[in-house]
Design a binder for these strands. Structure first.
Lengths: 95, 95
DNA sequence: AAGATAGTTCAAATATCTTTGAACTATCTA
DNA sequence: TAGATAGTTCAAAGATATTTGAACTATCTT
């Protein structure tokens, strides 16, 4: 199922989300594990405060680069590879 | 000729450069024309001051998203498509 | 129920990015 | 040569992004 047209603002949101070392490290980590991981685990691995983690996950989520799965207290995230594909593979088409 | 390894900082530089509406508009414009264009022309089209233009071109240049060709007073820029390719097509490999 | 754990929200502090105008260099044109 | 044009540099101002700690909600454990 392909997503419909993306606006410039969507692109900005995605590239802004990618333009930060912590968020890139989170993406790298999720890519290596390639399965759902809790926000708490990632924050620990990245050595950032939970507040800061919460902030970064929100930005990744709003860019649709991760998808979220809440189980009771905990929030699990995975990469949403279709979004990467949409913005990278089809960059020139969507520009 | 392929470029050697890219660091996280290189990636940040590229994604930051892409994370701005003016710079995205410049890229879009250069992509449509698909040939060298002077900074002055672009600044006019984008309706930004020459100082602001100078700033944005520097950022695009340092990210190697454009390449520059100076002719006397004027500076001509083109897209450096190999950089886009390097960061988009090979994103997961280089992560 | 009391205390621990996972995560969010808020506002203040800090850091980073972008725009602005003035002053500057180099080139062009009359 | 004098004046216009293309672009850069600098520092200050303004706008955004990020981090921090405290207070909060919801769930889990004993």
């Amino acid at each position: 199922m392909t997503k419909s047209m993306q606006t410039t603002e969507d692109s900005i949101k995605v590239f802004k989300a990618l333009a930060d070392p912590i968020r890139l490290a989170i993406i790298r980590y999720l890519n290596q594990l390639n399965h759902e991981v809790s926000c708490g685990e990632i924050s620990q691995v990245m050595k950032i405060s939970k507040t800061s983690g919460s902030y970064h996950f929100k930005i990744l989520q709003e860019a649709e680069l991760i998808s979220v799965h809440k189980v009771a207290r905990e929030k699990y995230v995975t990469l949403d590879r279709s979004t990467f594909d949409r913005y990278f593979t089809h960059f020139w088409q969507n520009l």
